[in-house]
Amino acid sequence: MTLVTGVVVLDCAEPEKLAAFYKELLEAEETDASANRIEIMGAEGTRMAFRRDVNATPPSWPRPENSLQVHLEFRVDDLDAVERMVIGLGGRALETKDAGGPFEERGYADPAGHSFTLFRVMPTAPKQH
Rank of each mutant, 00 (worst) to 15 (best):
E73L: 00
R120Q: 13
G42F: 02
A20I: 02
E104I: 11
T96Y: 10
F74D: 00
L68T: 02
E83I: 14
L68W: 00
R52L: 12
P123Q: 15
G101F: 03
I38W: 06
T124G: 15
N66P: 03
D11L: 02
A43K: 15
P15D: 03
R51V: 07
E16M: 04
F119S: 09
G91C: 04
T117C: 03
G6K: 06
A49P: 04
L3I: 09
G107S: 11
A33W: 05
D32F: 15
E65T: 09
P58H: 06
L89R: 03
G91K: 01
F74N: 00
R52W: 05
A81D: 11
M41T: 14
T117N: 02
F116H: 05
N36T: 15
K97L: 09
F103S: 14
A28S: 06
W61S: 03
E95Q: 10
P123Y: 13
T31C: 09
L118E: 09
R120P: 10
T2K: 10
E29T: 14
P64D: 09
L79A: 07
P62Y: 00
E16L: 05
Y22E: 02
G90N: 03
L89D: 04
P64A: 13
F50P: 01
K17E: 12
P59S: 10
P126V: 11
A56Q: 11
L72Q: 00
M41E: 14
G100E: 06
P59I: 01
D77G: 10
L72M: 00
V7Y: 04
T57Y: 07
E104G: 10
N55I: 04
L89K: 02
E24D: 12
P58W: 00
R120N: 13
P15F: 05
S115Q: 05
A19P: 01
S34Q: 08
D78E: 11
K23F: 01
M1D: 07
V8L: 05
N36A: 15
R51N: 09
V82Y: 06
E14R: 09
V76M: 06
A125E: 14
